[in-house]
Design a protein around this nucleic acid. Structure first.
Lengths: 337, 337
DNA sequence: CTGCAAATTGACAGCGCTGTCAACTGTGTC
DNA sequence: GACACAGTTGACAGCGCTGTCAATTTGCAG
């Protein structure tokens, strides 16, 4: 037979309601009572039944992590974030569910509604690019579901975690400049993603600061995928004046660029320097190992979830935490010859 | 105000219990009534509250996917399986949760117990290598929690999904033999994983069938990680008579082997052929693209979950479904020179 | 048309917990 | 010593659904 809250109450010599208070870490319980109840719980190995807690208390102890599975089929980046979110939820005995949410089409708000109505998450963790679809955020606020974001575009009124991606991108390009590169290309990510905008802005900032006029031919559109990196590289290498270095907006695209370089018999980094962004495991497994910006994805997932939990547990308003990045110089970049 | 089952019942002119029966797809409801109730549900956009269903019905509608996070930090393989499991659960309106379960130490059975007691999953999907820890399976059976496995070692009494990995490995090695290789090395995975055993067995089978005596120096231990592939390759390439081809038990290790080849200035596939197993996205992003065995991981996750759901929904006993593999010949293998 | 078994439907209690609100306890004040 | 007041505890109902079992309807043989 399962141990119920009532059983714990009897053992501790208090009313069920008092045990409930202890369980939920509520105020107004004397230290002595709290200690007695906690001991009884331990002794009996009491496990609250979450369905009963949910039904009576009208909360689900559930955090849903939403991601866009249009452009992100099982990506490493998301897997790492998920790992961090899960760790944070575990620590506070919250459950976590992952929900793909196709952002294609215009009924994604309905799909969000369905997720909320079906699962009643107490809160939501938003991952890029879902962090910035205005109608979706609006609906979340209307339905009064707290949420935290990983790398949202707007810092105003958002809680979660962010990184100064523009500065990171600028740092990367400044590094390339310091190696002596002047014709530096940039492969952009999907146009309306915040990550694409920041990384492009950082690139432009560094180039401008070095007094270099922007050559539009050196900035090509990508889509964060390996294949788009391949396409972008083909375009860049076909230029009359090809770049001596390529800064791709993420590692997958950078690996596409390197792939094309190999295909053409160009040596990296002797003939062309290539660098990426994110530092997914792939970056170290490529030959030569990829110079990139390290983004602590797992930690970022954890921190975003912790901010959300802060709110859910009524501990405070939560904030937008800034995470550090680092430039990982490896073997795919060198001075031009 | 939320629409409750009672509201639907009133609208359809039946008792709440009858609506419940329709909701749960039970027998003994006349077609006419069923139709009327279903219509009422639709019209009112009724969403059953899962906490109430769980509490009253003593089931959770929850499937937990267990994985070992010792050796698998956010691996692509698991992410793909997860994706498939999620799809299957969604289709039957079950929730899914992912649970890392460190297999190190000997209290993993307790940790399993905690998962069951805390979350009460109706069923569990086991992923390698958790599929084969006898004490864990025993506990699962004792506690009467149905489970399905992805690639279990033992096919007896297990439901889920499997692939003939030994045949796949043999096929790969036969392909290398057909290219003219004779000194073929194998980098093993973690010793007690089923995948390691089968892939090694397939390697041996093919070598023996070709009349080649096994050279123990050509079979080296790995651990399914990139780093272990690097270590294994250093060992192999240092041999007096190094291999002309290396078959690694998975793609990550194969990429480590290629990395060392590059480091030493050896050309793949001219100087050394390398191949892997799994066909994770990395395989196509390496240069040269990796010859490997394609394993339909996502589909396998889905099929395993479907077998479990078959059981959970009282539809049958479930079975062990065999999935096909395919040899993906790419550019990392060629005849020796 | 009657009688009987099978199929269909409903009444009711209760799953294990928490919200509400009332009751009680102890402390400090004048 | 009486009173006010904050701090602590408990009684009770009820969250929305399903299990049990009894009541009713239907189908069909005689």
């Amino acid at each position: 037979m399962r141990v119920r809250l009532e059983d714990v109450a009897r053992r501790a010599g208090v009313s069920p309601k008092t045990v409930s208070r202890v369980l939920n870490d509520e105020a107004n319980v004397s230290d002595a009572t709290r200690k007695r109840v906690t001991a009884a719980m331990e002794e009996m190995d009491y496990r609250p039944l979450s369905s009963a807690r949910s039904l009576a208390g009208n909360r689900s102890f559930l955090v849903a992590m939403l991601y866009d599975n249009n452009d992100n089929p099982a990506s490493t980046y998301l897997a790492e974030i998920q790992d961090g979110v899960l760790e944070a939820c575990d620590a506070h005995r919250y459950n976590m569910m992952v929900r793909p949410l196709r952002m294609r089409g215009d009924d994604f708000v309905n799909r969000l509604d369905a997720v909320i109505s079906d699962h009643h998450p107490d809160g939501i963790v938003l991952t890029p690019p879902i962090t910035d679809y205005a109608p979706l955020l609006k609906r979340l606020r209307e339905r009064n579901v707290p949420f935290a974001s990983v790398s949202p575009v707007s810092r105003e009124g958002n809680i979660g975690v962010a990184m100064d991606e523009q500065l990171a991108a600028r740092t990367m390009v400044e590094y390339l400049l310091s190696l002596g590169h002047r014709r530096i290309a940039h492969v952009m990510g999907i146009a309306d993603h915040g990550a694409s905008r920041w990384r492009l802005a950082g690139y432009r900032e560094a180039m401008a600061a070095a007094g270099l006029a922007e050559d539009p031919a050196l900035v090509v559109q990508g889509a964060f995928t390996f294949a788009s990196g391949v396409a972008a590289a083909r375009q860049l290498f076909a230029l009359k004046e090809p770049p001596t270095a390529v800064f791709a907006a993420n590692d997958d695209m950078a690996s596409g660029v390197m792939w094309v370089a190999n295909e053409r018999g160009m040596k990296v980094p002797q003939d062309i320097s290539v660098c990426g962004f994110d530092d997914i495991p792939l970056a170290s497994q490529l030959w030569p190992a990829l110079t990139t910006i390290r983004q602590p994805s797992r930690e970022m997932g954890k921190v975003a979830a912790l901010q959300l939990l802060e709110v859910l547990r009524g501990r405070g308003p939560g904030r937008l935490v800034e995470m550090p990045f680092s430039l990982e110089v490896r073997d795919s970049t060198a001075s031009p010859r």
